[in-house]
Amino acid sequence: MSLAVPPSAGRTPLLRAGCLPAAALRGLSALRLPASVVLSLAIVALVIGWSLAPGLFTGQDPVIGVPADKLLAPSLAHWFGTDHLGRDLYARVVYGTASSVTSALIAVTIGVVAGGTVGLLAGFFGGWVDTVIARLVDVLLAIPNFLLAVIVVTALGFDTLNVAIATGVSAVAVFARVMRAEAIKTRQATFVEASFLLGGSRWHILTRHVLPNASRSALPLAVLQFGLSILVIASLAFLGYGDPPPASDWGLLISIGKDYLKWPWLVYAPAFVTITTVLSVNRISRWLRRID
């Protein structure tokens, strides 16, 4: 009779171990997620965990080190090794996550809200509103993204919040362009015309029909921009435009590590975390675009 046992039966007790994860897993398999997407989601979840409650993931102190333990190679006690002051690098990466991730979130929010609104209005109203906004977006696009962020952060002053704002400003044009195109596409749809003929006001059509439809394609873009923002923010932090040490933004950690290339894990560990996070975010974005 043992032959009749379905091959998956052996795994069931594992799933039952926790009711919530089991339900979540079943939900995920119902969506037929590719393995790489599941892995990406797990990595992003871990990164979010790091930024919300860093203390849960490491018992070490990110600021005060043990000078005797300086520049140790990665080991079981210090997963990512230690830096020149004997601080645990893993703890520094974990504690630096909050600021790296929050900045990227702020940047994307600025891009989505400012760029999205502007693009939506341009596409929906057309006419001179559209002409003016389209030209402004052209101007923003004409200045290389990174230089734009650099000049904004120069004007605002060097700290991590300003770096986030600058990155957000440099993302405005992208969202404006996409939302404008989507709004134009939706505005011409039959159901929008129908809603207008049924007496729907412009505001009603804008908020109930055009916005929801146009923002569908903005979601994968926002996720993609989140990954890109992490990179831009890391670059700005690398150049020293963010908070100074002992802050431990990922880009800043890499920048400190570059002066200690004889102990390469000081560069490789934070770089690995950055790259893995961005790769996962990009994978999720691609997947979102496909299921859309």
Binding site: S235, F238, S255, G257, K258, V267, A271, I275, N282, R286
Partner: peptide, 15 residues
Amino acid sequence: PSLFLSVPNFVIGLV
């Protein structure tokens, strides 16, 4: 391509 797009160019330089 997607790997290259996820690596900051200062990391490539340092490597």
